[in-house]
């Protein structure tokens, strides 16, 4: 295939990846920004979203498209509830100490993974896409659903942005992020804000997974990669900065597709990982973050 179409395909793939990544990483970034918690179990919330989508579409006696739509609403709610529970029972008791919460979320990661293995099983299972449309370009075919994923992820991100900037709850969250003590002094129930933030972060990961699961499959070990990639995105974007996270997701998503056109993909991953480490070492505020 000649270079032009090759690049087009890489860009298309990169956009899909960026969209899903943005959704997942924004959840992680939100939790870190507001709560100063590095949630190592974030990838498992992603996995739970996918597994939840499989259960819902498998057992709901609805046509595939409709069942999937139900999953898109229910799965994030359920995952969010689980996250809120984890926050109240574990993280809150640790007083959100950064290092203790890392250890606790590693434990949570194992617990959730085991729960999925026990109740869902070791197989990778497909979820039917709500519609199947193939776009035939002159050089190659492409899945129409993938483009829909981009649009849907964009819509959800827009909703999050509106929520954060236009609603009182969003304002309260931002206030807590800036100064927790002052927020408490002004009568904000910080505990509830934290539980809500943790739930929202997990729900966003779950929503990303429901979007992606008709393309990939639900598998109990699928949370590992989204976690690492989200970490990368959140770091490049500047820890806790939502706007930076979005730009970084786009950057990483697109460059990952394009870099692997020129290098061996494994080598590309090594280089990308090292670059991220270097960014954190030499520009700890991230590429787009404001100076701390």
């Amino acid at each position: 295939m000649s270079f032009g179409p090759f690049l087009l395909l890489a860009l298309l793939e990169g956009t899909v990846m960026a969209a899903v990544l943005a959704l997942t990483a924004v959840g992680l970034s939100l939790v870190f920004g507001v709560m100063r918690v590095v949630n190592v179990a974030h990838g498992e919330f992603f996995m739970l979203g996918a597994v939840g989508a499989w259960f819902i579409t498998y057992y709901l006696p609805l046509p595939p498209g409709l069942a999937w739509l139900v999953a898109l609403i229910i799965a994030p709610l359920v995952v969010g509830a689980i996250a809120a529970l984890a926050d109240v029972t574990i993280l809150k008791r640790l007083k959100y100490d950064p290092e203790a919460t890392i250890v606790a979320t590693i434990g949570l990661l194992y617990i959730l993974q085991q729960a999925a293995l026990t109740f869902y099983g070791p197989d990778a299972r497909p979820v039917e896409p709500p519609f199947s449309l193939r776009l035939q370009f002159p050089w190659f075919g492409y899945s129409g659903y993938k483009l829909f994923v981009v649009a849907a992820a964009g819509a959800i991100l827009l909703a999050v942005w509106l929520f954060m900037t236009r609603t009182k709850a969003g304002l309260v969250m931002r206030a807590t992020q800036v100064d927790m003590e002052t927020a408490r002094a002004f009568g904000i129930n910080v505990d509830r804000v934290y539980a809500g933030t943790f739930a929202l972060g997990a729900a966003l990961a779950a929503a990303a997974a429901v979007l992606i699961v008709p393309i990939q499959q639900a598998h109990y070990l699928m949370g590992h990669d989204p976690l690492l990639l989200s970490f990368i995105v959140v770091i490049i974007g500047g820890l806790g900065s939502i706007r930076g996270t979005l730009i970084a997701a786009l950057l990483i998503g697109l460059s990952d597709g394009v870099i692997s056109m020129f290098f061996s993909p494994t080598l590309a991953k090594i280089i990308a990982t090292l670059l991220v480490a270097m960014v954190l070492v030499f520009r700890p505020q991230g590429l787009f973050g404001a100076r701390a």
Partner: peptide
């Protein structure tokens, strides 16, 4: 890897 389309060209 979880997505392969970009290898196919």
């Amino acid at each position: 890897e979880t997505s392969f389309t970009r290898y196919l060209p």
